[in-house]
Design a protein around this nucleic acid. Structure first.
Lengths: 213, 213
DNA sequence: CCATTTATGCCACTGAGTGGCATAAGCCTG
DNA sequence: CAGGCTTATGCCACTCAGTGGCATAAATGG
């Protein structure tokens, strides 16, 4: 890796870390891009060569994860599993790889905690999930024998994965000491709850359905 | 209803119609708010007293629908149905009421077609769905015996409804002559495909699963 | 060490969104 | 049908996100 690339990557990391720290401390709207760029000693022009928007920099950890997910999906094998099981294992593998990066879990937790109380970040994130979903569907159609654009089932299966992921993140991001293994467990739980969610009946629903072996 | 309220509502309708028309013709980014306000003969200040953002005005038809959904949910009765079935019927009822408004279907179709090719509108819409989901969950917790904030199942059930709704809209908004009955049918189909989506296996998935009796 | 490529900084600009304040339009009571 | 009262509107100036152009600095590769 050349010096130029390393420098660029360092600037990028620096922007992400500073942004997450400042946004968390003073609120997303309480920090202007000029201030952020000042703190990192970078011009605003450079910021926009690295990130597409103010929301983007704070959501970088999530982007990284889903990029890994798509990469893993390219080499995933069905192996008799349900599509949803395969997606689950692919996402878990991506999670494991993302968590290898120093401090990723902490950044991811900050990003999601921030997204939960910042409408524009939430919107940005959810749009990003949507476009990731489309990419995932492209891979599924290309690599596996799945209905095609008119079959709603693969689309719904990916949406369910994303929904379960959001449920898992919601609880995880709030807790102290973000642990990737804990996130993985929460994701498994949320996905395992899908069938019960489908058949849940209002009158009978007693206590919660969260448990981990 | 007082004259003042009627005028305000007329301005609002006029803004929505003009916005959808102009955005569709010249693209969301191709129309500035100044131009839109010029066309409706309203000051920009007034625009922002009616809508919270440029995205908001174009997404008004969707807001209307989900507002009706929440209202219907307040008076819905379980009646032995699955939670998801109850949500489905509630949404169908809301759809029926929304469709009574002159030209609603056309506006809704334009709004969604627009959202599909405008990232910021898609993000805005999806964030709106998220906050509607939260409101719906509040109602569900309050009115029915459902686990509480720690039970992921109701949350997942609402997310599935929303996912199915998006699937239904995606196909419907592209077709010519938007018909509410057609949308209802598509929504039923998408929801009916959920169990199959959950158990779909990559190797075996043959043709599509779209059909309507 | 020099030529080429590529990143950065600076500057001016557009457009979304906000706050303040004067004015006009609808509303209510006698 | 006045009169004051309330509430919406218009106008102005402002902040801040995001973009394009161009000169400059830094890395690369010979």
């Amino acid at each position: 890796m050349t010096l130029r690339e390393r420098k660029k990557l360092r600037t990028r990391q620096s922007l992400i870390d500073t942004a997450l720290e400042q946004f968390t401390r003073r609120g997303f709207d309480g920090v202007t891009l000029d201030e952020l760029c000042e703190a990192v000693e970078v011009s605003k022009r450079t910021f926009f060569r690295t990130f597409a928007s103010k929301e983007d920099v704070a959501m970088a950890p999530a982007q990284d994860l889903w990029t890994l997910f798509l990469a893993e999906l390219e080499s995933a094998e069905p192996g008799g599993r349900t599509l949803l099981e395969m997606e689950r294992d692919t996402l878990l593998a991506a999670l494991e790889r993302a968590a290898q990066e120093e401090g990723w879990a902490g950044r991811m937790a900050l990003a999601y905690a921030l997204a939960q109380r910042t409408p524009s970040m939430d919107g940005h994130n959810r749009h990003f999930c949507e476009s990731t979903t489309r990419s995932a569907l492209d891979v599924l159609w290309r690599r596996f024998g799945l209905g095609g654009p008119d079959d709603p089932r693969p689309r719904l299966a990916v949406d369910m994965l994303v929904a379960a992921f959001h449920v898992a993140m919601a609880g995880w991001a709030e807790g102290p000491e973000p642990d990737p293994a804990d996130l993985a467990a929460r994701l498994r739980d949320a996905l395992a709850a899908l069938p019960a969610a489908l058949t849940l009946v209002p009158g009978e629903g007693g206590a919660a359905g969260v448990s981990s072996p």
